[in-house]
Structures are given as structure tokens and as C-alpha cells.
Design a binder for these strands. Structure first.
Length: 275
DNA sequence: CCCGCAGCCTGCGGGC
DNA sequence: TGCCCGCAGGCTGCGG
């Protein structure tokens, strides 16, 4: 994020190459015209979206989905030289920023910076930023979830409530909080909400510090894999000994179940079925 | 409104 | 060795 900011902020976009019309959804048809020749005012993040504000009062939104990456190259040409390279941006000082996304789960959109009515709905309905200082607390969590009957695992994935958590980090947060993933979100005790409210930002900070979770082929902008997958306590560890129970001299094995078509990993021993 | 689920897409890994 | 199939996930849209 900081790298992308330093590449783009205050710079003029000299050339844009768009290699296909869509990712998960179609690109705005005038995307190239919106970007070309514009100076970048600033680059921000909201939830999992990167927002690029342009001098022409348009904002370009980028979501990397599952497999999307941004590559930064100095002194390269505008032509494609990577597989699945869908968008290439050249700045005035010769830096090349490209969007690579093999699985095409990413998204690129554009709207008027000054007109909230033009913002896409998925952007205006986003929930709390867990890394914002003081944004999460036990009472905030209780207020968010006290009416939610779905399992806490599903509720934590809902970006309309808390943003930024995906399948991996929800599994890890529930594991560390000792909360069973199938409990109804509105059935948790106040102390469970309290534990989650401090564990969620802690896990996200650890993951960011480690460079993210590399599953299969994920790499950062400099091409290095992230390291958080080595810190996973439950995700992808079906059948392995639970580290929490093991420390207490007890034996328990990590289990994998499916919730709403997504894998959940948990320890059936210390992630209690009681709220 | 609330909730669950199919579907999008490619690469990888297991089985034969 | 090579092929085929199933799985992985963020988000949307649809149906109940």
C-alpha cells in the first residue's frame, strides 16, 4: 500500500494499457480515458479496496480479489511481459504499475469523487475498520451482532459489519478467542465479544507485519511471498495437533468443516460450543 | 430485511 | 508421465 502510494501520489499518468474488458465484472468502458494524462491526487484504502483519486475528480477503485497483485517496475516498457497482466499504468517518471490477476476475482471501477450518489453500493455499505484506533470494542461488537442469528464464522466474514476479514483470519481469530465457529453470532457472551474485539486487530496487524498470507502463488509487490501462512494456527492444518491444547498437555486435533460452502478450521476441544 | 448458496476463474495437487 | 477432476476464496445476485 505504501509502495503503491509512493509510486502514484502526485504523479501524472502518462499511458494506460488495458488488455481485456473485464475481471469479475466489466471495467468502466471509459477507464482508459479517465486515467490517461491525469495527475493522481492521493491513494487511499477502504476495507479491501484501493481508491485512487484523480485530478479530474474521478476515483478509480481496485480490488485484488483472491489472486490479484500489483507489480511495480522501473524502466520498463508499456507492453505486456507477464502472464495475466490485465492493466498497465505508466507514470510520468517511467514507473510501470501493473495489475496481474490469474483468477480474475478482482474488480476495477470508477466513479465521481465528489458525488456520493455515484459511489458503488458495495463501497457505501461497508462496516467498521478494525484497525482504526478504538473502532472495535466489546460493546461495539455486541451491538453489531446481537441481532444476527447466523453463525459467528459467517457474521465475521460479512463486510457490512466489520471489514477486512477473510476466511483465513476469521478462522484464526475464532481459534485464538476460543469460540466455536458454529455458535450463533447473537449468542456470544460479553467476554467473547471483548476477546474478539482485541484479537481481530491484533491478528490483522501480525499478518500485515508478516507480509500477508501466501497461499500457493501469492507474492508482494517485490515478488516475495508473504509469511503469515507460517503463523497459521488452524487454517489448512486439518488433523494436526491443536497448539493451544498441546501447551496444556492435552491432545486435540484440528478439524475442518464447511459453513456456507467455505472451509472452517477449528479445534473442537478448546473452541467451546458454549457461548 | 435476513440468510444461505451457486457461480465466477485459474492453478495446483491427488488419483489413476 | 499425463490427464482429469475437485478444491480454494471475495463478492454478487438470486431465491426462500
Amino acid at each position: 500500500m505504501q509502495e503503491v502510494r509512493s509510486v502514484l501520489e502526485g504523479k501524472r499518468i502518462q499511458a494506460v494499457r488495458i488488455n481485456r474488458p473485464d475481471l469479475r465484472r466489466p471495467f468502466p468502458p471509459n477507464l482508459k480515458d479517465i486515467l490517461t494524462g491525469q495527475k493522481v491526487r492521493n491513494v487511499k484504502r477502504r476495507a479491501k479496496y484501493i481508491l485512487v483519486d484523480l485530478a479530474n475528480r474521478h476515483t478509480v477503485l481496485i480490488h485484488l480479489g483472491m489472486s490479484g497483485r500489483l507489480f511495480i517496475d522501473k524502466n520498463y516498457e508499456c507492453h505486456s511481459h507477464r502472464k495475466h497482466e490485465h492493466i498497465i499504468i505508466m507514470t510520468e517518471d517511467g514507473t510501470r504499475l501493473s495489475l496481474v490477476d490469474p483468477r480474475r476475482f478482482g474488480m476495477v471501477d470508477a466513479f465521481s469523487s465528489d458525488n456520493p450518489a455515484s459511489y458503488p453500493r458495495f463501497l457505501t455499505h461497508l462496516g467498521i475498520e478494525p484497525l482504526e484506533e478504538g473502532a472495535l470494542s466489546a460493546s461495539v461488537m455486541r451491538d453489531l451482532f446481537c441481532t444476527v442469528r447466523s453463525p459467528i464464522k459467517n457474521a465475521l466474514l460479512d463486510q457490512k459489519k466489520i471489514v477486512g476479514l477473510g476466511n483465513i483470519y476469521v478462522c484464526e481469530a475464532l481459534f485464538r478467542a476460543g469460540i466455536h465457529p458454529q455458535l450463533a453470532a447473537n449468542s456470544l457472551s460479553y467476554s467473547s465479544y471483548a476477546r474478539l474485539s482485541s484479537i481481530i486487530p491484533a491478528i490483522l496487524k501480525e499478518a500485515i507485519a508478516a507480509g500477508g498470507s501466501s497461499l500457493r502463488d501469492y507474492v508482494t509487490t517485490d515478488g516475495k511471498p508473504g509469511g503469515f501462512q507460517n503463523l497459521h494456527q488452524v487454517y489448512g492444518r486439518t488433523g494436526e495437533a491443536c497448539s493451544v491444547c498441546h501447551q496444556k498437555g492435552k491432545k486435540a486435533l484440528i478439524e475442518k468443516i464447511s459453513q456456507s460452502g467455505r472451509s472452517t478450521f477449528f479445534c473442537p476441544h478448546h473452541q467451546k460450543i458454549t457461548p
